[in-house]
Amino acid sequence: MKSFLFRLYLKWMCFLAHFTTMEENNVVILNGSGRSGSNGYLFYKYLQLNHPEFNVTLVEPWPSSHLKWATWQKIGAARYVITTHQPFKARKGQINVQFWHGVPLKRMGNMAHNTLRRDTKRNGKLWEKNADIVTSSSDLYETLMSACMAISGKKYRKLGFPRLDYLKKPVISKAELLKDLFDQVDEQAQIGIYMPTFRYELEDQTIMDQIKQGNFFAFEDFDGQQLNEALAQRHQYLIVKLHPYEMRLFASFKSNYSNIAFLNNDYLFDHNYDLYELLGDTDFLMTDFSSIYFDYLYLNKPIIFITNFLAQYEKTRGLLMGPYEEITPGICVNSQTELIKTLSELDNQQIRNRRLYWLDLTNQIKGDNYCEQIFDYMTKRYR
């Protein structure tokens, strides 16, 4: 019922938006990705800095039923509508540029085990109707996205993703990040970051209970103090960046560990950072089924894959590729005991070769400055 009413709300607001005057140099960015590798937010920053001749409006969170009429006027007046999730237009004549928010690893839409057929059919029609440009990085990306969303091949353009421009250009130094999050000075420091996927959709309350109690890995053998000591012995520091839903479970939880720190959206919003503007300062990544690892390949740094809920996740939602151990260029662990053993040797030549193999598969675009490529194409193609 809520979904139906929201669609009615959107139709009504789009009708009203027709009474605004569209301007060629107006861009609106509908950002549903927060500050965790948001193509929309980072493209917004790029346009503000490099193209002041364009009027750019950032709308977040999106979608929302609480936007002011002034915001809808700006949406209606935009020639270019940038989206990070479902494509959207308020009126005819607008150009929708679809960034999406990650190379898909988890099943979505048509391919997912936990979606309804009527919803996937509706989404397919919206993609066909509203998306004009779907930015891409590779044939593999296009194949995976089309399998899930039924996107026409003619809509893709291999232009890259804005977030990748910021991976190798951190906004602060590694020493500053260490001081900000850990209040430490350590010239030997290795900073790791743990970014799991959205585990709530596993519909397993025991997982949420473990996370709420401070067991952010939801390991059966979790021991925070033991893990902290293992990190400290190696001059390693772990940033824990959970999904916003899981971070809410930590509302009153403060890390009592010297080498483990929680990164929430408040730090990112307060400093006007996106997470990708900090990732270049990290030395290794830990994740489970999050597609962030495809982007982390650009840094060519070690990745640890946490597999304690792999079987459960494959059954509940599913993955687009497998076997998992073959598509993940890093060391897989399913317990804290295995994780601690891995911390002493994160990398080797065989793993580095696998990372480069997967980077070639997921990135067929030569050169850098993806933001500029996207801007040039969208403004010249529809001039």
Rank of each mutant, 00 (worst) to 15 (best):
G224W: 05
N353V: 06
S36P: 03
V28N: 03
G124S: 15
N25V: 03
R383F: 04
R163T: 03
K174R: 15
Q225P: 00
W12L: 14
R383V: 07
V171L: 14
Q349L: 12
L320Q: 05
T143R: 14
I239S: 09
G102V: 04
V28F: 04
C14S: 15
Y237A: 05
M22K: 12
Y46E: 01
T316W: 01
S290N: 05
T115R: 09
A251Y: 09
K155I: 12
K2F: 13
I211P: 01
V28I: 06
I374M: 03
E246Q: 07
T282V: 15
P87M: 09
G214C: 03
F198G: 08
Y293K: 06
W127H: 14
Y41H: 08
I340T: 07
V97Y: 02
F15C: 09
F216A: 01
E372V: 00
F222H: 04
P323A: 11
H85M: 10
L30Y: 00
Y382C: 02
G102T: 13
R381D: 12
Y273Q: 10
D270Q: 15
Q188L: 11
R118P: 00
E345V: 07
L346G: 08
V56E: 10
G318N: 08
L275W: 00
W12G: 06
L238C: 10
P61W: 09
L275Q: 02
P52H: 03
N130P: 04
